[in-house]
Write a protein that binds this DNA or RNA. Structure first.
Length: 321
DNA sequence: AAAAGTACCTGCGCGC
DNA sequence: TGCGCGCAGGTACTTT
C-alpha cells in the first residue's frame, strides 16, 4: 500500500540511477503487469528498448520517466504505478527477485550497467508507455527532485489532481470540491481526482490528527475544519517522508510495499485496541468502503444522529421536472 | 451527475 | 496437517 511518501522514496532512490541511463533491454515475465499499457501505441518492449531516460517524476502515487524522443515524435514516458504491492528494485545486472514481473536492463554513462526489477505480488500495479500531454494548469507536472519537470504529463495521469505537497497544489479547488461533496470526508481524501497521494493509512492518520470522524460529510465541514485537515494531511505526509528518507540506502532502493511502509509512528491505522495517544480510549476499527477505518471513538465523534433524508414536501416534488 | 458497487489480484492467517 | 475462506485495498470501470 505505497502512498505518496513511499512512492517518493522509490522515485528519489531511482532518480540517480535511471536519469541519463539507456534502457538496453526489457524482460517481460508477466504480461498482466502491462495492464496500463495501451497497445494501440505499439508494443511496450519495442517502444522502450534503446530509449534514454531524461527524468524521474512523481505526482501523487504515480511515477513516470520521460524518454528522449526525436523532434518529429510525440513525447512519451515510461509510467509506473505500484498498486498495492509493487516495488521497483535497483539491482546488480542479472539479478532476479522473487515475483519480478518486468525486468529492465540499464546502461548508465557513469554508474555502468544496472538492473531495475518491477516486483509485484498482487499485480495491481503496472508499467506502461504513455504519451505526454500538456498539464491542465500549465505548471510543471509534478515532483522530480531539484529541478521542476516539464509541464507535460502522461495522458493516463492527467486526471489525477496534484498532491498536497506540490507547490502548485490548488487549495481553493480542494475547498470548493469539499463544499460540494455530500459523501464522508474519508471518501474525498481517497479520491485521487480531488487530492492525490493519500491512501487508507494516511487518510486514517490525518483524520485522527484533525479529530474528525471519517464519515463526517465533507460539505458539512467548516472552512476552518477543512483547513486544519489539509494542514494535518501535509504534516502526516511530510513526517512519513522524513522517516523514509533516513532509512533509505542511496545505492539500492528496497521499499517493501507489504511491510516496509513507515509504520513506527502511526496513531490510528492498525492500532485497533491500543490506547489513543491523546486520550487513552482504545482505537476502534470498522469497515468502510470495503476497507478498514481506524479511529478514536472519543476524539473523533461520529457525525450527529445519522441524518435520515428529510421528508420531501409536495412543493419540492413539484419543483423538479 | 454524483455516488455506490465491482473487478482485478495473491498470500497470509485463521478456524475447523 | 490441510483446506477453504476472509481480508488486505488502489484504480478503473460499470451500475444506480
Amino acid at each position: 500500500m505505497p502512498e505518496l511518501p513511499e512512492v517518493e522514496v522509490v522515485r528519489a532512490g531511482l532518480q540517480p540511477a535511471i536519469v541519463g541511463a539507456r534502457i538496453a533491454d526489457i524482460d517481460i515475465y508477466d504480461e498482466r503487469s502491462l495492464r496500463r499499457h495501451d497497445r494501440a501505441l505499439g508494443g511496450f518492449v519495442d517502444l522502450l528498448r534503446g530509449s534514454r531516460v531524461t527524468a524521474a517524476v512523481r505526482r501523487g502515487k504515480f511515477l513516470w520517466f520521460p524518454l528522449e524522443t526525436g523532434a518529429d515524435e510525440r513525447p512519451r514516458a515510461l509510467v509506473g504505478h505500484l498498486g498495492m504491492s509493487g516495488q521497483m528494485l535497483l539491482r546488480e545486472p542479472g539479478t532476479l527477485d522473487e515475483r519480478t514481473r518486468i525486468g529492465l536492463s540499464l546502461e548508465h554513462p557513469e554508474h555502468g550497467d544496472l538492473r531495475v526489477n518491477f516486483v509485484d505480488q498482487r499485480i495491481f500495479g503496472s508499467l506502461a508507455i504513455d504519451t505526454l500531454v500538456p498539464t491542465r494548469d500549465g505548471f510543471p507536472s509534478g515532483f522530480a527532485g531539484d529541478v521542476p519537470p516539464a509541464a507535460l504529463i502522461p495522458s493516463q495521469v492527467a486526471h489525477i489532481a496534484r498532491d498536497p505537497l506540490d507547490p502548485h497544489f490548488d487549495e481553493p479547488a480542494l475547498f470548493e470540491a469539499l463544499s460540494r461533496k455530500k459523501v464522508g470526508i474519508k471518501r474525498v481524501l481517497l479520491d485521487q481526482t480531488v487530492v492525490s497521494g493519500i491512501g487508507n493509512i494516511y487518510a486514517d492518520e490525518s483524520l485522527w490528527a484533525a479529530r474528525l470522524h471519517f464519515e463526517r460529510q465533507a460539505a458539512a465541514l467548516t472552512r476552518r475544519q477543512a483547513a486544519v485537515l489539509l494542514d494535518e494531511v501535509r504534516t502526516v505526509l511530510q513526517k512519513a517522508l522524513a522517516e523514509g528518507g533516513t532509512s533509505f540506502d542511496a545505492q539500492y532502493v528496497n521499499v517493501n510495499g507489504a511491510s516496509g511502509y513507515f509504520s513506527h509512528s502511526l496513531n490510528a491505522y492498525g492500532q485497533t485496541g491500543k490506547p489513543c495517544a491523546r486520550c487513552g480510549t482504545p482505537i476502534e476499527r470498522v469497515s468502510f468502503m470495503n476497507r478498514g477505518s481506524h479511529f478514536c471513538p472519543f476524539c473523533q465523534k461520529r457525525p450527529r444522529a445519522a441524518s435520515k433524508p428529510a421528508p420531501v414536501s409536495a412543493a419540492h416534488t413539484a419543483d423538479r421536472a
